[in-house]
């Protein structure tokens, strides 16, 4: 009983983000729909403008978020109409960081071995490329499962112009 209430409270607090962006923080609730990816990149670009982060670095960061959110929606939530994702992006001390939390089944996006891209046009496979792009762009990646949620953390050092 107590546990249920706690989980519900936690659910509420995790997924009731207001669509507000404080100066160096972006906080968004996303539903189970790939169209959300477009909204995330738009918001991230606005966040970058507000915080004076060069567009090139913002978009580099955005690719990683695109890949991970697409993964959650296509694989984590596959076959389910529900599913919630919360995204928090912060800029602090020259580091752009993000936390993605979802209530899908346990799924560590970084667990799979990364294969080097090989093969000609006929035999090229795209699976796994998304995560290779995340690893390439980020300085730190992390995953944990806690209390029924997946937590993915990303950090990218900003380059001073």
């Amino acid at each position: 009983m107590i546990l249920t209430i706690w989980v519900e409270l936690r659910n509420l607090s995790l997924f009731s983000a207001k669509e507000c962006g404080l100066e160096s923080r972006l906080d968004m609730s996303l539903v189970n729909d790939l169209q959300e990816v477009g909204r995330v990149i738009d918001s991230l670009e606005e966040f970058g403008v507000r915080n004076g982060i060069p567009q090139q670095q913002v978009l580099r960061f955005a690719v990683a978020l695109d890949e991970l959110i697409t993964n959650i929606i296509s694989h984590g939530f596959s076959g389910s109409s529900g599913g919630n994702i919360r995204l928090i992006v912060e800029q602090r001390d020259g580091v752009l960081s993000a936390e993605l939390v979802d209530d899908g089944p346990p799924f560590d996006p970084f667990a799979a071995e990364v294969e080097a891209p090989t093969g000609d046009i006929e035999h090229r496979r795209i699976g796994g490329l998304g995560i290779a792009l995340v690893r390439n762009a980020m300085d730190h990646i992390g995953y944990k499962r806690d209390g029924g949620f997946n937590f993915v953390n990303l950090e990218m050092k900003l380059k001073t112009a």
């Binding site: 990149i41 567009q55 978009l59 955005a62 690719v63 695109d66 890949e67 697409t70 795209i126 490329l129 998304g130 792009l133």
Partner: peptide, 9 residues
Amino acid sequence: DYISSAGLR
């Protein structure tokens, strides 16, 4: 300005 693996596909 931007392409992700969905674009590569």
